[in-house]
């Protein structure tokens, strides 16, 4: 038999190091070239322009009722338009985008059977999940950011760079003041999607069906939104994952109130930390049979 410590037979192949497997760049490229990635970003980038066209050619605001809604004010300027675009997309489109990037990432590898070859490469399981999570979160962040930014560009080109006008009272906030707050809004919109992201990610490691993972995460949001409408639940609803999703509107008032957003961040972080921990724990012990 061979000799222990034979240089020709070390414990691993020459040049192999667990810490170098599945680098972020590789994973990024693997995902980037996918059609759904391109299609989703195409949609997110096109939506503001579609909205601009809709506002340009649609009939003017009816002006019924005496309270100004965000949609009535969308054409006031770029910032207003971006806030409107975010408000109409945050509850569903961005949820789907985030669920897609995070829910698809592991499940699609399982679906393609490429997961087992990555694991046998070997990419250590924790590392595989970590890299995939980082890249999926990166794509999600890009999705959540790119829409309001494109809306800001589209809105500014179409309606001008004006001060933001607040729904309800119609007060205005100077654009210079509103811009940093707008960054807070986008950041908050991102954090509030963490629950969707981590739920999708957990489902992604639990199933071989990418559709199942994405649909499951979106379903969670739908169920949570329905429960949120049940007034009888009282303050329990504050702990629903979607309850604070619109709290960012508080930042775009003359007297910004961040308490709702802080609560929203707390709830979101709480859920996502636990869900992601469960995802890692499951994946670590999982028998990969796909």
């Amino acid at each position: 038999m061979s000799v222990n410590g034979n240089p020709a037979a070390p414990g691993y192949a020459p040049g192999y190091a667990p810490g170098r497997t599945l680098s972020l760049r590789v994973e990024f490229v693997r995902q980037l070239r996918r059609r759904r990635t391109k299609a989703m970003f195409g949609l997110l980038l096109a939506l503001p322009w579609i909205l601009v066209v809709a506002f340009q050619f649609g009939p003017g605001p009816a002006g019924q009722g005496n309270t100004l809604r965000l949609s009535d004010l969308a054409t006031q300027g770029g910032l207003n338009f971006a806030a409107f675009a975010l408000s109409v997309s945050a509850s569903f489109l961005l949820v789907v985008a985030v669920a897609l990037f995070c829910g698809d990432t592991v499940a699609s590898e399982a679906d393609w059977s490429s997961l087992r070859y990555l694991l046998a490469a070997p990419v250590p399981r924790d590392r595989l999940l970590r890299q995939k999570l980082i890249v999926a979160m990166g794509y999600s962040a890009a999705a959540v950011t790119v829409l309001p930014l494109m809306a800001l560009v589209a809105g500014t080109l179409a309606f001008g760079w004006n001060d933001i006008q607040v729904p309800g009272t119609g007060e205005t906030i100077p654009a210079a003041d509103a811009l940093p707050r707008f960054a807070v809004v986008v950041g908050y919109a991102l954090v509030s999607q963490f629950v969707v992201a981590s739920m999708a990610f957990l489902l992604s490691v639990s199933t071989d069906s990418p559709l199942g993972a994405v649909g499951g995460a979106v379903g969670l949001v739908i169920v949570s939104s329905i429960l949120q409408a049940v007034e009888a639940l009282g303050s329990i609803r504050e702990f629903l994952p979607t309850f604070w999703n619109n709290a960012w509107t508080d930042a775009l008032t003359p007297d910004p109130d961040y308490s709702g957003m802080i609560k929203g961040v707390a709830v979101s972080v709480t859920y996502s930390v636990i869900l992601i921990a469960v995802a890692f724990r499951r994946f670590r012990a999982k028998d990969v049979v796909s």
Partner: peptide
């Protein structure tokens, strides 16, 4: 799972697994 020695193993088990795109 993930044992470094697997880097000395080349495998083709139960069909190919590629990124179709």
């Amino acid at each position: 799972p993930g044992a470094p020695v697997l880097s000395r193993l080349g495998s083709f088990v139960e069909g190919p697994g590629f990124l179709p795109h």
